[in-house]
Write a protein that binds this DNA or RNA. Structure first.
Lengths: 229, 229
DNA sequence: CAACTAAACGGACCTCGGTCCGGATCGTAT
DNA sequence: ATACGATCCGGACCGAGGTCCGTTTAGTTG
């Protein structure tokens, strides 16, 4: 539960990142900068947002994700139920917000961190590293990742998903200038789906090492390159 | 809506296929034979099952999948709400039951139908044909397929999913005796996910033809074979 | 045909996600 | 300091999925 609490800690201490309001689209992972034009939250709203995230993290630690009821969170944060929904849109939005910190971290790593994840390494190596990173990140927060999954209709259009996939597409284009990288990115992303990881590791007892070599194998096949070593 | 109604028609006229009771696992697509030991439904139960499926199909035709409320279905079938849940376990189970007919049809086709889908053709061709068949079947019943999706925790373990995946694994093993076909099957299956098809065709406006060539391309890459023509 | 049992039935009931709107509050302009 | 409008708050309310359990009924046995 440490990662969650840490994320929340950061969320409450750093200047609150405004959550979009109108058609509440969850944490836009792509914009690293809050942007100057972003409508900043009112003081009370920001305070309540932090308290809600903290309360949610506490509930997860105590009763698991299933214990994160919108009413329970509201009560634990001593806030009205409506407030939770206004801030996060829906339950999924709240859960995604809890994952926001590690998501930004990951994105920062592959956008500007050190190789092989970040720029500098050849794209094929970056792609391998990317998969491994996502794999382990998901495995660490499996329960939360599973619960935060949006319904299938919105999943693929969701900013958080798109952010990751866009990166895969970029790398693929460098490796396969002539391939339909937009399409090819999907089976690659699917291999990293938290639901699949859950199934393979928890329900079928596969060790993470096998998933890892499975990823490099898949990457090699899809890109038509030689597997490493 | 024709396919749904047809499926229901068949379901009501043919001897009712017993739905497992205890830990309600949805239509086991793999068993073509009801089996002799199967606990047959009581007469009234079978009658109500048929009425419920018919009512559900009618509701879909009239108000779309969103109109399929468990209470609405119960009322339309002039049956108690508890009966719906006893028979189908949950909403997903009911929706899956509506897809049961086309699912069995598909399975029969690739298990015992004519080539290239059925046995007789080389495994690579069968795999290509399989993907195309699943692709178009999903596209036809997209709305229902989407709504019938189980939650991510159960999805990969679900019999209906396993039935299809097992077939892919079998074909893959014939093509790649040395590959980790169990793992490789997953990204292939993922490409055929109704949610993805919905996203690509409805939200991003891709024509089915592109998805189709995308499939053959993916198969060629994963199997390390030459794309056809 | 009567008795009996396992199965099925039905609908009240519970929980939880999500909506709504009158009232309180913050930030600002004067 | 005061007034004002945009924003936010809270909790009553609603709908739908899912559970429970007392009652009914189908099928079987003697």
């Amino acid at each position: 539960m440490f990662p969650v609490l840490y994320a929340v800690f950061m969320s409450s201490v750093l200047p609150p990142f405004p959550q979009p309001q109108e058609p509440v689209d969850p944490p836009r992972l792509l914009e690293v900068e809050p942007g100057p034009g972003e409508p900043c939250l009112r003081a009370d709203a920001a305070r309540n947002r932090a308290r809600l995230l903290e309360a949610a993290a506490r509930l997860i630690a105590e009763h698991g994700v299933a214990g994160v009821t919108m009413e329970a969170v509201a009560a634990a944060a001593q806030v009205g139920k409506g407030t939770v929904f206004r801030r996060f849109g829906d339950r999924t939005g709240l859960l995604m917000a809890l994952l926001d910190h590690s998501g930004r971290q990951l994105q920062a790593d592959f956008l500007g961190g050190p190789p092989p994840l970040g720029p500098g390494a050849p794209p094929l190596e970056r792609l391998r590293a990317f998969g491994v990173a996502v794999l382990y990140r998901s495995a660490e927060q499996l329960e939360l990742q599973l619960a935060a999954q949006p319904e299938p209709t919105r999943r693929y259009a969701h900013p958080a998903y798109q952010a990751l996939r866009t990166h895969v597409v970029m790398l693929l284009r460098q490796i396969l200038p002539d391939g339909d990288c937009d399409l090819l990115s999907h089976p690659l992303m699917a291999y990293l789906d938290p639901g699949l990881i859950h199934h393979l590791t928890r329900q079928r007892g596969m060790p993470m090492e096998r998933l890892e070599t499975g990823w490099t194998d898949l990457v090699a096949r899809v890109t038509g390159t030689e597997p490493p070593r």
